[in-house]
């Protein structure tokens, strides 16, 4: 009887389907058929090498891609019941910085160097919440406190350049979270930081997320960060999703040759081993993407059938893989027979 109500309860916060992006002058899609689902309070990590389309996907979602030269070839992004790709600019601006917010590797992408940090946060609050100057300033102070900036009263009146790198990162997070967004997109927020400061920033994001139940899309190229932060993970290669699913499944039962290569390329933290097992070669350039599987030129499992692009198939339990050989033990039976994989 309550089915209708329950279904709305469970409607995902964000559902992207078949997002493809192209740039003028580049023949192939730079983002090619991305689909994903994200629930409130959930953390999705997007991982992949530079140039694989992580930032483009995130910027498209925020409506921040320059169009032209960028062009969305297909796709829907239903966020809180509305298609983000089909909204008037004014409506999108109301959502941005309010219901969804984005932070970057370089804090000065978001912060204005000429305006005091407190004023910038307060302004973000006033724009969306119609708060008075005083209320907005109080909120800015509260946010600086929540991101654990020492002496927040004093910092309100500082300019970004008066802060250290780690402090600016916190100020940017404070601004992004000031309006309690339902979705935070973080594009490599800790890539430029020392491990110690990275640990602080990740801890901060986890804590804010617990307090607000926001969903988080965290873009990173560090599988360690993925393991610590993600509920679900999406591995991208050359503009496509090659593997996605609950983080435990992907780490403990990796299926795509690229995911496996990436994991074995990482130096293990265990006792010292010999050589790293690597992925040969490099990512194909954007203007020479193969028609079929984009990983084929580097893939040790590739065969003639890989000249046709493999679809992203669900192997069960939301574990999705785009490889003709998946599940691998069935796809490479000759090696199993030789006893290699037992």
């Amino acid at each position: 009887m309550l089915r209708g109500a329950r279904m709305t309860d469970r409607a995902p916060l964000l559902q992207i389907s078949d997002l493809s992006i192209r740039f003028a002058g580049v023949p192939g899609n730079l983002v090619d058929g991305i689909s994903l689902t994200l629930n409130a309070g959930e953390t999705l990590c997007i991982v992949g090498e530079s140039g694989c389309g992580k930032s483009l996907s995130a910027l498209a979602l925020m409506g921040l891609l320059p169009m032209p030269p960028a062009k969305r070839m297909s796709g829907q992004a239903i966020f809180e019941g509305q298609d983000l790709f089909d909204l008037p600019l004014e409506t999108l601006k109301d959502i941005r910085g309010n219901r969804m917010a984005m932070i970057f590797q370089e804090p000065m992408t978001s912060l204005n160097p000429a305006i005091k940090v407190g004023e910038q946060i307060a302004e973000a609050v006033r724009r969306h919440k119609g708060a008075t100057r005083e209320e907005a300033r109080d909120r800015a102070l509260e946010m600086l406190r929540r991101v654990r900036i020492p002496a927040p009263e004093k910092r309100l009146d500082e300019y970004p350049h008066q802060m250290s790198g780690g402090m600016r990162q916190r100020a940017m997070i404070a601004m992004a979270m000031a309006n309690d967004p339902a979705l935070l997109i973080a594009d490599e927020p800790t890539t430029a930081l020392d491990v110690t400061v990275q640990a602080q920033v990740l801890d901060l994001m986890r804590r804010l997320q617990r307090e607000t139940n926001a969903a988080l899309i965290l873009i990173t190229h560090d599988l360690g960060v993925v393991a610590e932060m993600a509920d679900t993970v999406m591995v991208m290669y050359a503009g496509r999703i090659v593997e996605a699913g609950p983080v435990r499944q992907v780490f403990e039962d990796p299926q795509h040759p690229y995911t496996i290569g990436l994991m074995s390329s990482m130096p293990d933290l265990g006792p010292r081993g010999g050589r790293l097992v690597t992925i040969p070669g490099v990512v194909p350039p954007a203007d020479a993407m193969p028609e079929g599987c984009r990983f084929a030129a580097r893939c040790p499992f590739a065969g003639p059938d890989c000249a046709i692009a493999p679809p992203l198939r669900d192997l069960g339990g939301r574990h999705r893989v785009a490889c003709w050989r998946a599940p691998l033990e069935c796809g490479a039976p000759d090696l199993i027979a030789q006893g290699v994989a037992t």
Binding site: F251, E252, D253, P254, Q255, P257, I260, G261, M263, S264, G270, V277, P280, P300, F301, L328, E329, A332, L335, Q338, V340, A341, T342
Partner: peptide, 17 residues
Amino acid sequence: GRSPAAEQRFALYRAMR
């Protein structure tokens, strides 16, 4: 350590390479 399935996958990958 890693899960047995992951270890198996790494071994398979190494062997294929």
